[in-house]
Amino acid sequence: MTAAAPDGARRTSWRRRSVLPGFNLTLGYTLAYLSLIVLIPLAALAIRSASLGWTEFWAIATDPRIVASLQLSFGAAILAALVNTVFGVIVAWVLVRYRFPGRRWLDAAVDLPFALPTAVAGIALATLYAPNGPFGAFLEGVFGVKVGFTSLGVVVALIFVGLPFVVRTVQPVLEEIDRETEEVSATLGAGRLRTVTRVIMPGLLPAILTGFALSFARGVGEYGSVIFIANNLPFQSEIAPLLIVIKLEEHNYAGATAIATIMLVISFAMLFVINLLQAWSRKWFGHD
């Protein structure tokens, strides 16, 4: 940050003086609105969860069906994030380094999952991958793999919703990478593959990890697109957010709250890791 305060400005107890007005107003509004919309509602969940007591919470958390749904949500999210990392890096690379007809269109298309509602994506993917859909019939006929209405369908939906995260975190970093080091590496006799893996990739690593983490975090909580393409069978293709809805409909608030709390804690941990990654990336590579 560019230093806002002129020399000799006194430091008040917790903030640096600035000549600009509106600090109290804007920070006050920010905190009030944040509390009203986000913090108080989340606190309600925390309080409800705390009122369960440890024994009841543990009994719910270790229920085999709930464990299975959490395993699926996290497992499918990891798998989807891995696929997105591989293809996302390739897409980012192609978009940054090559010039070819239609590149602009491709670049714009990457953001589609941000703009397309998940329910729309869900019914479209379900139609494509259903046993009688074009992709579903092909995959089953040629490879004998069922995707629609199985747990693989969950992974496909999560690939869709998570794809832009990797591309959009890797792309700007790749644009800024200093090409001189690549030249040096090439001049010193390194092959192209060696230059890419030893010189470029380490610089991209924080961005790739951030993209992976964001894609993963999005996938864990995803609901709208998944419920259409999966057949939502317990122990097979029932994701944790769906189980929250089921518990809620059964009026089992304790169950819903407990699953939500587990997911929330893990999401917060993810957010923390992402912020660490970005701080690390800023420190080492000087960009966000």
Binding site: V38, I40, P41, L42, A44, L45, R48, A217, V220, G221, E222, Y223, G224, A240, P241, L242, I244, V245, L248, Y253, A256, T257, A260, M263, L264, S267, F268, M270, L271
Partner: peptide, 17 residues
């Protein structure tokens, strides 16, 4: 925070509230 919270959990929070 809201980015990290599952949409379903966000809805649940308001049902609890």
């Amino acid at each position: 925070l809201p980015f990290a919270v599952s949409p379903v959990v966000s809805g649940l929070v308001f049902v609890l509230l």
